[in-house]
Simulated scan of single mutants.
Amino acid sequence: MRAPLKLYLAGPDVFLPNAAAQAEAKCRLCAEFGMTGIAPFNPDLDMARPAAQLWQEIYADDLRMMRESDAILANLTPFRGASADAGTLVELGWFLGQGKPVFGYSNSAVSFAARSRAQPDDALPGTAIEDFGLADNLMIEGSLTLPLTLPPDGQCRPFDSLEIFQLCLEGIAGWGQGFNR
């Protein structure tokens, strides 16, 4: 019998006011699909430590969880801008560099080009906007083991909705049947 696929659940969900509940819900859904969710939520760390120590401990703890994981499932819903969360993208790149499977979903049905056009053009006016009809930057989508899971009806979901996360788990479950660890 194979061990359950261990998924590192990356994303800016850790910044939500209900981060602990969101992490628990995602881990429960993973278990329903026969997988183990590893949420980078660090409640056991001493949050009273000085910031200079705390961020390093969070980083080290997240790296430990990433090493223990077989694959990443990243929430690539746009966060604080036109694209996915920067920290999540670093984690996605780490898994890609390790040769581990990379999966992602987005609750946004708006194209990357449309979101980019809506951003203020203060920093570099007149720069080109990447328009390949993709949901995010081509390097993000190109890194994924399976296509980015998006709302099938073309309608955006709330940031914390788990509906598209669950659809992504269904795809991973089908893919994972042929995966040997």
Rank of each mutant, 00 (worst) to 15 (best):
A3V: 00
L5H: 08
Y8E: 06
L9W: 08
L9I: 09
A10M: 10
D13R: 04
V14Y: 03
L16P: 00
A21C: 00
A21D: 15
Q22F: 11
E24Y: 07
K26Q: 12
R28C: 11
R28I: 13
C30S: 08
E32T: 11
E32C: 14
F33R: 11
F33S: 05
T36A: 13
T36E: 15
G37N: 04
I38C: 14
I38N: 10
F41P: 02
F41N: 06
N42Q: 15
D44R: 13
D44F: 13
L45N: 10
D46I: 11
M47F: 15
M47Y: 14
Q53L: 15
Q53F: 13
E57F: 09
Y59H: 13
D61G: 00
R67F: 11
R67S: 07
E68G: 03
E68Y: 10
A71T: 09
I72G: 02
L76Y: 03
T77C: 06
F79I: 01
R80I: 04
A82M: 08
A86M: 13
T88G: 02
W94S: 01
G97D: 10
Q98W: 13
V102A: 14
F103L: 09
G104L: 04
Y105E: 04
S106Y: 06
N107Y: 07
N107W: 06
S108A: 12
S108W: 03
A109Y: 06
V110F: 07
S111D: 13
F112I: 02
A113L: 09
R115I: 05
S116T: 01
S116Q: 04
R117N: 06
R117F: 08
R117A: 12
Q119N: 01
D122C: 12
D122Q: 12
A123H: 09
A123T: 09
A123C: 11
A128P: 04
F132S: 00
F132Q: 07
G133N: 05
L134Y: 06
A135F: 12
N137K: 02
N137Q: 07
L138Y: 05
G142L: 05
L144D: 05
T145P: 07
L146Y: 07
L146T: 05
P147F: 10
L148F: 05
T149Y: 01
T149I: 06
T149Q: 13
L150F: 00
G154Y: 08
G154D: 07
Q155A: 15
R157S: 08
P158F: 09
F159E: 03
D160W: 06
S161Q: 09
S161G: 10
F165I: 02
Q166L: 06
Q166C: 14
L169I: 09
E170M: 12
G171Y: 02
G171V: 03
I172M: 11
A173F: 11
G174K: 14
G174Q: 14
G178D: 12
F179D: 08
R181I: 11
